[in-house]
């Protein structure tokens, strides 16, 4: 049921700099970016300005520092300064985002709110599929879900995680698993496989 045919699972293309852009900024919530995040022949060196997350970074990042690598202590810290940076940016920038799926779409949201369109950003989610699940009954967001059944932290019902992703809410849809026939609980499956 969770992997029905009506999936709108996001598809990601490996990253490569857009040759038409004036400037490029690559952001990630990791420290080390997997090679799989880049298109063939493309690597870190093709993105001279990079922001990453290093938990114990000791130097304050400089969001207007230009080319170079800036380390942020958390993804939230990075996203807050990304909002600040984009508010002062001019047209011609491309934003490249790689990392966990929730981070990728959080960054996309920041970019959209700053006025960027989908053609001005490139997204690539990596790592183990970990889903942020929104309960349609109580609106609670359940982070870190790796199975098709999860107990909602808000209302306590057992949700089945449908293969439906909301780009606006940055969350997968969770619906009470026995809503149709009470007591009929589907088999649990591993989403991270």
């Amino acid at each position: 049921m969770s992997t029905g045919t009506a999936s709108n699972r996001p598809r990601y293309a490996p990253l490569a700099p857009d040759p038409r852009a004036r400037a490029h900024l690559l952001v990630t919530d990791h420290q080390d970016i997997a090679e799989a995040a880049f298109a063939p022949g493309i690597g870190l060196a093709d993105f001279p300005e990079r922001w990453d997350v290093v938990a114990h970074a000791l130097v304050l990042p400089e969001p207007f520092g230009g080319p170079g690598v800036q380390h942020f202590r958390s993804a939230s810290h990075l996203l807050a300064l990304l909002r600040h940076r984009l508010a002062a940016e001019t047209m011609g920038l491309r934003l490249y985002v790689t990392g966990s799926e929730p981070f990728v779409w959080d960054a996309a949201r920041v970019a959209i709110e700053a006025g960027m369109g989908r053609e001005e950003m490139r997204l690539f989610a990596t790592g183990k599929p970990v889903r942020r699940v929104s309960c349609v009954h109580c609106r609670t967001i359940n982070p870190g879900v790796t199975t098709t059944l999860v107990t909602c932290a808000g209302c306590g019902v057992v949700l089945t995680v449908r293969d439906h992703f909301s780009r606006v809410h940055n969350a997968w849809m969770g619906v009470q698993c026995d809503a149709e026939v009470p007591g009929e609980v589907p088999a649990i499956e591993d989403l991270s496989a």
């Binding site: 038409r20 852009a21 984009l86 940016e89 001019t90 047209m91 700053a114 369109g117 001005e120």
Partner: peptide, 30 residues
């Protein structure tokens, strides 16, 4: 000098509109 999220609209002689398109493309506007 235009902030992110700007759309440009040109209307006038072809030379002016071609100039706007070319200058915007050179600056990386989608």
């Amino acid at each position: 000098a235009q902030p992110l999220g700007t759309h440009v609209y040109a209307c006038g002689p072809a030379g002016l509109m071609d100039g706007v398109e070319a200058a915007a493309a050179a600056l990386g506007w989608p």
